[in-house]
Design a protein around this nucleic acid. Structure first.
Length: 267
DNA sequence: CTATTTGTTTATCC
DNA sequence: AGGATAAACAAATA
């Protein structure tokens, strides 16, 4: 589920807790989402600290407690963050719970366990946070940067390249399909076969889908308009909002791609 | 029983 | 060396 905009939505779920003190913390450390956590004192080391800041880069989240406790979270395929006041409310698959002074709980749940927790106690910014690539929504992310990445991946289908986080941080399966639909490029097209002018369409569609997704989903998880591919792509039987003809669903390198054959004619 | 899933990570081949 | 691809990870849902 969580791509750039959904992850930003979850950052905002925990954001209201900024300034609050941690009373208690518990984690199911045997679960594989904690496989990168080395500290023996996690998560008790958070007790007594205050949540100070929350950040997102691509699909990665970082919560900072007292300017020195860095908690990195990745939602994987099924991760969710909750901010719960009801102490009787029990959720399955709560693997990290932080109890706050206002009787609210910060909860990370992840049934499928493809998520990842990172933790570092340091005054310095951890490497895993400092080394994230530039955001696609940043004004300094230019066409040449995107094109340089495409040049290195020229033998792959464009759909697969859009899913590579080092080049397209935050893009996931539905956003990649939306970008290709808006720029009218079929997902199986090899990057080397995409002309310069078409790459510019791709660049603008990438920026646009990121901005639109953040506006609609990060802010209240509203239902996207039917003019997007989004509402039509999830199962067999959907029709293209442009051509009104059936969409095609097919695996490309193991991931389902959905596209409109008459609309995405570029190949 | 089977097939499917909005994501990485690792192994292997080229 | 580094790019491309398949399999692995784990568990729910249809």
């Amino acid at each position: 589920m969580p791509e750039l905009a959904e992850v930003e939505f979850f950052r905002r779920v925990w954001e209201p807790a900024e300034g609050l003190k941690v009373i208690c913390a518990s984690a199911n450390l045997e679960k594989r989402i904690f496989r990168k956590v080395k500290s023996k004192s996690f998560p008790k080391c958070l007790v007594g600290t205050h949540l100070r800041n929350s950040f997102r880069k691509g699909k990665q989240l970082c919560f900072v407690f007292d300017e020195s406790h860095w908690l990195g979270l990745h939602m994987g395929m099924t991760g969710k963050l909750r901010y719960s006041h009801d102490t009787k409310e029990e959720f399955k698959y709560n693997y990290l719970t932080v109890f706050l002074e206002n009787d609210h709980r910060l909860i990370f749940q992840d049934p499928r366990l493809f998520g990842k927790v990172l933790y570092e106690h340091s005054k310095e910014v951890p490497t895993w946070w400092a080394e994230m690539p530039l955001e696609l929504t940043d004004a300094s992310y230019k066409f040449t940067q995107m094109n340089n990445f495409l040049e290195k991946r020229s033998r792959s289908p464009i759909k697969s390249v859009l899913l590579m986080q080092e080049g397209f941080p935050g893009i996931g399966n539905w956003m990649a399909d939306e970008i290709l639909w808006r720029s009218r490029i079929a997902p199986f097209v090899k990057v080397s076969n995409i002309a310069l002018s078409k790459r510019k369409d791709l660049y603008h569609a990438t920026k646009e889908v990121c901005m639109d997704a953040l506006e609609v989903i990060a802010d209240g998880w509203k239902r996207p308009p039917d003019t997007w591919l989004f509402n039509h792509r999830w199962s067999d039987g959907g029709n293209c909002p442009k051509t009104k003809k059936p969409l095609i669903r097919e695996k490309i390198n193991g991931r389902t791609a959905c596209w409109s054959p008459a609309w995405q004619t570029y190949h």
